[in-house]
Amino acid sequence: EFILQPIHNLLMGDTKEQRILNHVLQHAEPGNAQSVLEAIDTYCEQKEWAMNVGDKKGKIVDAVIQEHQPSVLLELGAYCGYSAVRMARLLSPGARLITIEINPDCAAITQRMVDFAGV
């Protein structure tokens, strides 16, 4: 995967993360976080594997957030924003999600994903 990915990106003209974002923009409903998550899950199941938590493990994350109702949540590494959208949609009003992503391209994609999801 890591050796072939740059070749695939070159042939496709963009990165996997950008392709995931484009899929979301084309297939998800703006302002609907659940729709965004479903679009990412569908893309990763049908098109390309991606390094995200996914729906199965995501339900565990959901349960922890719902049980503890944090007022501040810190995410280290956002990748394409799946977990940020997943967690933010469950936060109480006034709660904050702080996401740190070292890769500026992934940070920009995450910001667009979060904005599109409306969270």
Rank of each mutant, 00 (worst) to 15 (best):
101 E>A: 07
28 A>E: 00
27 H>R: 06
105 D>Y: 05
31 G>R: 02
32 N>K: 05
23 H>Y: 04
12 M>K: 02
19 R>G: 09
15 T>I: 03
105 D>E: 09
117 A>T: 00
27 H>N: 00
111 Q>E: 05
18 Q>K: 08
6 P>L: 04
8 H>N: 09
29 E>A: 12
109 I>F: 04
33 A>P: 08
18 Q>E: 08
8 H>P: 15
109 I>T: 06
33 A>T: 09
24 V>G: 01
21 L>P: 02
116 F>I: 08
14 D>A: 13
30 P>L: 14
35 S>T: 01
14 D>G: 15
106 C>F: 03
109 I>N: 00
103 N>Y: 12
117 A>D: 00
115 D>V: 13
112 R>L: 03
119 V>E: 05
9 N>S: 14
14 D>H: 09
5 Q>K: 05
12 M>I: 06
20 I>M: 05
8 H>L: 13
11 L>F: 15
28 A>G: 06
107 A>T: 08
98 I>N: 02
19 R>C: 15
102 I>V: 14
19 R>L: 00
110 T>S: 10
9 N>K: 05
111 Q>P: 01
22 N>D: 14
111 Q>R: 06
2 F>V: 15
101 E>Q: 12
28 A>V: 00
116 F>L: 04
13 G>A: 07
108 A>V: 05
104 P>H: 13
32 N>T: 04
4 L>M: 09
24 V>A: 04
117 A>G: 09
23 H>N: 11
109 I>V: 07
34 Q>L: 01
14 D>V: 07
106 C>S: 13
100 I>F: 09
20 I>T: 08
108 A>P: 04
99 T>A: 15
30 P>S: 12
35 S>R: 09
4 L>R: 11
3 I>N: 04
119 V>G: 01
102 I>F: 11
18 Q>P: 01
105 D>N: 14
103 N>T: 07
20 I>F: 10
1 E>G: 13
27 H>P: 00
32 N>Y: 07
103 N>S: 12
22 N>S: 14
115 D>A: 04
23 H>Q: 05
15 T>P: 05
98 I>L: 06
101 E>D: 09
21 L>V: 11
33 A>V: 10
6 P>R: 08
114 V>A: 06
22 N>Y: 13
105 D>A: 06
97 L>R: 02
28 A>P: 01
13 G>D: 07
3 I>F: 15
22 N>T: 06
30 P>T: 01
23 H>R: 07
100 I>V: 09
33 A>G: 12
111 Q>L: 06
33 A>E: 04
31 G>V: 01
4 L>P: 14
9 N>I: 15
113 M>K: 01
19 R>S: 03
2 F>C: 15
107 A>S: 05
118 G>A: 06
21 L>M: 03
11 L>I: 08
16 K>T: 11
18 Q>R: 13
105 D>V: 07
29 E>V: 08
112 R>G: 03
107 A>P: 00
3 I>T: 11
3 I>S: 10
12 M>L: 03
19 R>H: 04
104 P>A: 12
19 R>P: 04
111 Q>H: 07
11 L>R: 09
7 I>L: 12
113 M>I: 02
3 I>M: 11
115 D>H: 12
106 C>W: 07
107 A>G: 13
110 T>P: 02
97 L>M: 02
6 P>A: 07
4 L>Q: 05
22 N>I: 05
6 P>T: 06
24 V>M: 01
114 V>E: 00
10 L>R: 10
103 N>H: 11
110 T>I: 06
32 N>D: 04
26 Q>H: 05
12 M>R: 15
104 P>S: 15
23 H>P: 01
25 L>R: 11
34 Q>P: 10
23 H>L: 00
119 V>A: 03
31 G>W: 02
26 Q>P: 00
7 I>S: 14
115 D>G: 14
100 I>S: 10
97 L>P: 01
17 E>Q: 08
114 V>M: 03
115 D>N: 14
